[in-house]
């Protein structure tokens, strides 16, 4: 579905992603983890075709991204940003309908189908009651759910989420991720940049850890999510235990006074070093 080969990408003179290789299959629910500034958002921007890359290749269903149109890309993938800068009072329904843009003809309006899809998406994200409220007048969490609804209304095979639920409360986070999982079960490919390790471990089948613009760990959640890997990558003491109900691994952070003296051995991960049982290539 998504195939990335020796990708180099950055802003101006600053190189952010260095020689990145990644292969994602259809229907996979993948989390991108890693410390601040490791290149998670940059990777999503590059895949979405918003940020041009210097060298290497990104292919979506075999098509090289750099050679496709914005319209083509928007029909393949929807993106959910961390937050939106809203300057004007649009109705929430109008915002969700914007997701149908890549399917419109130049002079045509929204069809009944488009309207139905937008309303379906609003129902799924529990924002239908906001349809006729102004996006500038609803809360931050509500805005974010409206933006998620817009991405769902786009009805793409791939959804890229960049910290999409950080502004939501716990119940809403779980609700959105339940929804994403059901999408993934029906074949949607999901790639989520995340800071919330435990949420990632609960929902993502595969985890890709980035650090300094390189993939340092890539593999199934149960194989990669352990004390040693997490502590090394995040450079702080992290203990992993089992979730009492689902059995998925969950991370626990250790405050200063309780930290083991040996934890200082968790230095920065070396360049290109591969940790754990995961693989960095495809």
């Amino acid at each position: 579905m998504i195939e990335i080969k020796s990708l180099f990408c950055g802003y101006g003179k600053r190189e952010v992603l260095k020689d990145l290789n990644l292969h994602l299959r259809r229907g996979e629910f993948t989390g991108i983890l890693g410390p601040n500034g490791s290149g998670k958002s940059t990777l999503l921007f590059a895949i979405a075709g918003v940020l041009p890359y210097r060298s290497g290749s990104i292919r979506i269903k075999g098509e090289e991204i750099a050679g496709t149109t914005f319209r083509f890309r928007a029909r393949q993938m929807a993106s959910v940003p961390q937050k939106s800068e809203l300057s004007f009072p649009f109705k929430c329904l109008s915002v969700v309908l914007m997701g149908r843009y890549p399917f419109l003809s130049r002079f045509g309006g929204y069809s009944r189908q488009d309207m139905r899809r937008a309303l379906d998406a609003m129902e799924q994200t529990e924002t239908i009651h906001l349809a006729h409220r102004m996006i500038t007048e609803v809360s931050g969490g509500e805005t974010q759910r409206v933006i998620i609804a817009r991405a769902l209304a786009q009805e793409t095979e791939i959804i890229l989420l960049d910290e999409a639920t950080s502004s939501l409360d716990v119940a809403k986070k779980i609700q959105i991720f339940d929804l994403l999982r059901s999408k993934s079960d029906r074949g949607t490919t999901l790639l989520c940049a995340m800071h919330d390790l435990n949420l990632a471990a609960l929902y993502c089948r595969r985890l890709v850890f980035l650090k300094d613009g390189r993939i340092v760990l890539n593999g199934l959640t149960e194989e990669t999510f352990n004390d040693e890997n997490l502590s090394r990558i995040y450079e702080t003491d992290i203990k992993v235990s089992q979730h009492p109900i689902t059995g998925s691994p969950q991370a626990h952070f250790v405050p200063g006074p309780h930290r083991q003296p040996e934890s200082s051995v968790y230095g920065p991960v070396g360049r290109g070093q591969v940790l754990g049982p995961g693989r960095t290539d495809c």
């Binding site: 921007f45 914005f70 029909r75 939106s84």
Partner: peptide, 19 residues
């Protein structure tokens, strides 16, 4: 219609398929 999309910001407009 693109004017609506542009008011969501450049990045989002691009992600929704606007050149």
């Amino acid at each position: 219609r693109e004017l609506d999309m542009l008011s969501m910001g450049d990045t989002q407009a691009k992600q929704m398929g606007v050149h």
